[in-house]
C-alpha cells in the first residue's frame, strides 16, 4: 500500500471509529449504520461485479440467507447479546459454501446468462421465504430476540459490527488488487478467452470471488436482521438491496477500492432523504430508477475512474506533450483494474 493509501484508510476508519462518541441524535447513528452497511455490501459486490465483470443481480438472496440464519438461531434468546456476532463467520462460510455450486454452474456461461441465473435466484429465494412458512414465518415475518444492551449505547455493537464487516470487505478487496487473484479477475473481465488461453484458472477464480463476495454479504445480512429485530421476506430478500449495491458501485467506480464506499456515502443519505421527502415507496422507486439511469448515461465509468482519467490527462497535457488520445491511462493505482478493462475493450 502506498503511504497516501495507508493514510487515507487510517483517517477514514479512525473517524468512523470515534463517530459514535461524537454523534448525539439517534437518527444520525441509524443513518450511519445503514451507510456503512451499504458500503460493505457494495464493496463485496464489487469483488464479482467490478473486478470480474460478472454483474450479479442475486446478492440480495444471500443477504436474506444471512438474515434468516440469524433470525432462526436467535429467535428466542440471545443471552448477553453478543453471541450472534460470533456466529456470523459460520454463517458467512455457510453462505459461501452454498454459493459454490450455484456460482460454478452460473459462471460456466458468460456474463449475460450469469445475470439471468442470479436474478432468478433472487426471486426464487424470495418466493421460498414467503412460502416456507414453518421456517420463515411467511409474509408475517419473524422476530429476533432483543439483546440486553444499555439504552444509551444500544446501537453501538451493531455499528461496530458493520464497521468491522466493511473493513473485512475492503480488506479482501485490497488483497484481491494486490494478489494474483485480482490480476486474474481483471484478465477475466477484459477478455475471458484470452485469459483462459494464457493459463488463468478462470473457473476457479470466478467461483472463489463469488463465494467470498456472497459470504460477506450474508454476514452483513445477519447483522442487519439482528439490528432491525424483525424481518419480512419483502425486505430481507429485496431487489432494492441488490440494486443498491450495483448502483453504489457504479456511481463510485467499478473495480476500484474506494469507489463502492464513495457511492454508498453519497447514495444512502440521498436515499434516506428521498424516503423522507416522498414517504410513499412509489416515488422512491421512481427516484431510484431516475438516479440509476442518470448514472448509467452520464457517468458510466463512475466517479473515481472519471476523475483519475481526467487527472492523468491533465498532468500529461501540462507536460506539453503530443495530443492526448481519449483513453484512460494507468497512472493512478486507484483506477487500475477498471481502466485496464476499459482500454482493452471487451469483446463480448
Amino acid at each position: 500500500m502506498t503511504r497516501a493509501g495507508l493514510i487515507r484508510a487510517a483517517v477514514f476508519f479512525g473517524l468512523l471509529l470515534v463517530m459514535p462518541f461524537a454523534i448525539g441524535p439517534q437518527w444520525v447513528m441509524n443513518l450511519l449504520i445503514f451507510t456503512i452497511m451499504y458500503a460493505g455490501l457494495a464493496s463485496s459486490w464489487n469483488l464479482v461485479g467490478g473486478y470480474a465483470g460478472y454483474p450479479s443481480l442475486g446478492h440480495a438472496a444471500f443477504f436474506g440467507v444471512g438474515a434468516y440464519s440469524v433470525a432462526l438461531i436467535f429467535r428466542d434468546s440471545v443471552g448477553d447479546g453478543y453471541a450472534p456476532f460470533f456466529v456470523l463467520p459460520l454463517i458467512g462460510i455457510g453462505a459461501a459454501l452454498l454459493s459454490v455450486p450455484i456460482g460454478w454452474i452460473a459462471m460456466r456461461t458468460r456474463a449475460d446468462v450469469f445475470a439471468i441465473v442470479t436474478i432468478t435466484l433472487l426471486f426464487v429465494a424470495q418466493s421460498l421465504a414467503y412460502n416456507l412458512r414453518d421456517l420463515t414465518g411467511g409474509a408475517q415475518g419473524m422476530g429476533v430476540a432483543v439483546p440486553p444492551f444499555p439504552i444509551e449505547t444500544y446501537t453501538w455493537p451493531f455499528y461496530y459490527a458493520m464497521l468491522v464487516l466493511l473493513a473485512v470487505a475492503m480488506g479482501i478487496s485490497f488483497y484481491f488488487r494486490r494478489s494474483k487473484i485480482g490480476l486474474s479477475l481483471s484478465a477475466v473481465r477484459a477478455d475471458e478467452d484470452k485469459a483462459h488461453g494464457v493459463g488463468v484458472h478462470v473457473g476457479a477464480v470466478k467461483v472463489l470471488a463469488f463465494a467470498v463476495s456472497v459470504g460477506v454479504v450474508a454476514m452483513i445480512g445477519g447483522v442487519w436482521a439482528f439490528y432491525i429485530g424483525f424481518i419480512y421476506p419483502a425486505f430481507a430478500v429485496d431487489p432494492l438491496i441488490t440494486i443498491g449495491m450495483v448502483l453504489m458501485t457504479f456511481l463510485g467506480g467499478r473495480a476500484t477500492l474506494w469507489g463502492p464506499v464513495i457511492g454508498a456515502f453519497i447514495l444512502v443519505p440521498a436515499q434516506q432523504f428521498f424516503a423522507y421527502q416522498f414517504g410513499a415507496s412509489q416515488f422512491y422507486l421512481l427516484a431510484y430508477a431516475a438516479i440509476f439511469l442518470i448514472i448509467m448515461l452520464v457517468l458510466p465509468r463512475g466517479i473515481l475512474p472519471t476523475i483519475a482519467g481526467r487527472l492523468s490527462r491533465w498532468r500529461l497535457r501540462r507536460l506539453g506533450d503530443v495530443p492526448i488520445p481519449d483513453v484512460a491511462t494507468e497512472s493512478d493505482s486507484e483506477a487500475l483494474a477498471g481502466q485496464a478493462a476499459d482500454s482493452e475493450g471487451k469483446a463480448r
Binding site: 449475460d112 421512481l286 430508477a289 440509476f292 439511469l293
Partner: peptide, 11 residues
Amino acid sequence: SLLVTFAVALG
C-alpha cells in the same frame, strides 16, 4: 444495458 433495463423495470 442489462442494468438500464432493470432501472426501466423499477421505474
